[in-house]
Amino acid sequence: MYAVRLWSVRHAKGLNRFYKAFERVLVALHPLWNRIGYDKVERPFQVMEQATKGFLFDCQMCGQCALSSTGMSCPMNCPKTLRNGPCGGVRPNGHCEVKPEMKCVWVQGWMGAENMGDLSKIKDVQVQVDNRLKGKSSWLRVVRMEKKVGEFAPKPPKAPPAKKADAAAAPKPAGEGKAA
C-alpha cells in the first residue's frame, strides 16, 4: 500500500534494525530449515515474505531483496525498475516521470538512507536482477548465502571433473544425433 510504503521509508532505521535481528534468527535456525529441507520451506516462506513485505514496502518479490541498500524503498516499484538510483526524469516536486501521482522511489530511497544514518550501503553498485529468482524467498536465499548451502555451496573440486563430465555427456547427444 502506497501510504504504508511511505511510512516504511520514514521508519527505515527501525525497520532495518528489526530486519537485521530477524535475519540473525533465520540464519541461526538454519539446522531446522536444513532438516525440513529448503525446498519444503520455500513455499511457506514465499507466502510469509510476500504478505509482510508486500504490506510494508509494496514488495514485488524479485527474490533478491536490496531494501537495506535502498533506504527501505523498494526499487522494483520504480516503473523503470532502477536499482542504482533515480533517472534524470524526476519531476521538480520529487515525483515520478512515468507516474506523476507517485513520489519517486529513489527520492524516497535517499530519504530512507538518511533516516538510517548510513549512506554507505546506498552507494553499493547493484547488478542487474536475476529474473529466475522472481517470486522466490529472498530471506531463505540470504540464509543459504550465509551458510553457504544450496546454490551457494562451495564447489572447488567440481571444476576439473566438470570437463570430464562434459566429455562424458558429449557422446549422448552424438548418439541421439545418429538415431535421428
Partner: peptide, 28 residues
C-alpha cells in the same frame, strides 16, 4: 543511459524493457 519512459514517446503502448539500469550497464 536509462532512457525516457515509453509514456514520453510516440508509442506509449510499447513494452518497457529496463533489463539493465544505466549503472549496471556501465559495469557490464
Amino acid at each position: 543511459l536509462t532512457g525516457d519512459g515509453v509514456q514520453a514517446g510516440d508509442q506509449p503502448e510499447a513494452k518497457p524493457v529496463f533489463d539493465f539500469d544505466s549503472t549496471s550497464l556501465l559495469k557490464c
